[in-house]
Write a protein that binds this DNA or RNA. Sequence first.
DNA 1: CGACCGATTGACCTGCGTCAAATATCGTGG
DNA 2: CCACGATATTTGACGCAGGTCAATCGGTCG
Lengths: 195, 195
Amino acid sequence: MPLILGGLAFLFKHPAAGRRQIVGYRVPGDFCDVHLSELYPLDYSVAALGPVRVASIPVRDLSDLLARHPAIERAFALAELLDLAMLREWLLNIGQRNAQQKLCHFFCEMSVRLRAVGMVNGDGSVELPLDQAVLADTTGLTLVHINRTLQQMRHDRLVELGKRRLTVRDPERLAAVAEFDTSYLRVEHGRTAVA
Amino acid sequence: MPLILGGLAFLFKHPAAGRRQIVGYRVPGDFCDVHLSELYPLDYSVAALGPVRVASIPVRDLSDLLARHPAIERAFALAELLDLAMLREWLLNIGQRNAQQKLCHFFCEMSVRLRAVGMVNGDGSVELPLDQAVLADTTGLTLVHINRTLQQMRHDRLVELGKRRLTVRDPERLAAVAEFDTSYLRVEHGRTAVA
DNA sequence: CGACCGATTGACCTGCGTCAAATATCGTGG
DNA sequence: CCACGATATTTGACGCAGGTCAATCGGTCG
């Protein structure tokens, strides 16, 4: 039961061929997988985005830990509900929106989550080290189309995606385009930094 | 905390406009929402597909019930993990596959789930009362395109979608087209009919 | 300098969307 | 039993967002 302390990771699934769908991101303070692997074999894989620091909680200690600390148990339950909420929101995003909106929405979500755990730089940009191929697998779009959409967004002064960082130029408009509503992330409700 | 006893329901979310994304189905034996609404406000809505019978478990009794019956608590945890797994699989489905595959995959999943709870007719068809508009909102496709894809599938002898029932003509080929792998549904693992 | 990896570009194509109208299908009341 | 409105399926013509293929460019590193 790994807990992320620093760095980013993502979860993904393979359909048969060379394709890949990313089904979630993990930021510091998140559990990698909420599974007790005994109960339910993993149906996805995990990969790191750059170096990651992880704390591993032995499963044997876990039930004890949860019993002893109700606050941790509650955090645990919340983490799972949050995961469900994010997946539903993603499904809506992938299913209903166009390329630009998908990217906007993803950037909004990551911006909020990264900000919540303090992965912000002095200039307000946010620590997000991904290449366009990863964005493609996140949104279900093509690398080429991601590239063109990003150019458009850059030109529209919405966001700037640097080598390792994301700079949101116009948060209002970004959220508006994405029809983004933070509430499903529940950042206020003390799920920031379990550590 | 409603538990479905008979009939079908689905969960959905609205992006701003008149669009709608269905984010899950509930069959007999499923909990409608695994939320303790105190902890986490719902971010989706529920609708019934025809008449539904529901048992309502008061939230106050719940923690007691779980504590007293570990088997139920375990079923509960499993239900949540299953929900996560289905959402991930759906995300992959919506993100990576073409219209025909999406439909095939959805039909495969529903066929398995409905069969697991005995909603099968004598002729092997399965109880699935939905119209093409609902299919559209499930897959993120257009009503018109759903119609054309269904015709193709009918012509290819893959499935037949009647007024209230789905008949799978060629299960093998259906699963092959959809790249469907049952395992994420874990039907063997005693999650059939909690009731 | 050469190899490599990621970003970018261009030409072209197609799956799916859009708009709009035509047919079923069905429950209801006359 | 039939007419009628409402709901669902089907059809046709047409357009475009996004996919595909393939080449180029820029930077980085040994």
